[in-house]
Structures are given as structure tokens and as C-alpha cells.
Simulated scan of single mutants.
Amino acid sequence: MSEPWTEPPTPGTPTGGAPVTTKSLLEQMQELLASINTDLAGLDSELRDTAPRDEPDDSARD
């Protein structure tokens, strides 16, 4: 026997949980960029902490 067919919920319709709040595309993009900037800052910090330090080469001064 097959189960009865049901339509999936459409975006923006409540599914019985908290009320759905829609955000404009601009707000979504601003949040995404803020998240990316935070991630990149963390990666930059990690790379700076683990990068080998350049020490002056005494033989290059001759």
C-alpha cells in the first residue's frame, strides 16, 4: 500500500512552530556578509599565529 500524497509546505508558511518572519534579500545578504567577515577574520588570525616568522638573513647583507 502506498501512503497518501501530501504537498510539502511552501516557503513562508508556518509549520506549527514559531511564527515565520520574512527578511528582505538585503537583510539576508548583510547577515551573510557579516558571517563571512567573521569567519575570514578568524582564519586570518589563525594563519598569522601559525605562519613562520621571517628572520633577517645575515648572508644577504654582504
Rank of each mutant, 00 (worst) to 15 (best):
T13C: 07
M1I: 11
L40M: 15
P52V: 03
K23E: 06
S24M: 07
L26F: 03
D57F: 11
D54V: 09
E3Q: 10
T22E: 15
L47G: 01
E46R: 12
L43W: 04
D49H: 06
M29D: 00
N37H: 06
D49L: 05
I36D: 01
W5Q: 08
M29L: 14
L47P: 01
P11F: 05
L26R: 05
S59D: 10
A34D: 09
Q30S: 08
E31T: 06
L25R: 08
G17W: 02
I36N: 02
A41V: 06
S59L: 15
S45P: 05
A34I: 07
R48I: 09
T38P: 00
E27T: 01
A18T: 09
A41G: 15
R48P: 02
A34S: 14
E55H: 13
A60N: 10
D44G: 13
G16R: 01
L26D: 03
D62E: 10
T38L: 08
P52E: 12
P14V: 00
P56A: 15
I36L: 04
L40D: 07
T38M: 07
L25P: 00
R48Q: 10
W5G: 03
P11Y: 02
A60W: 13
A60V: 13
A41W: 05
V20K: 14
Q28N: 08
E27F: 01
L40R: 12
T50H: 07
A34L: 12
P9H: 03
P9E: 04
G17T: 04
S45M: 12
A51E: 14
G42D: 10
L40V: 04
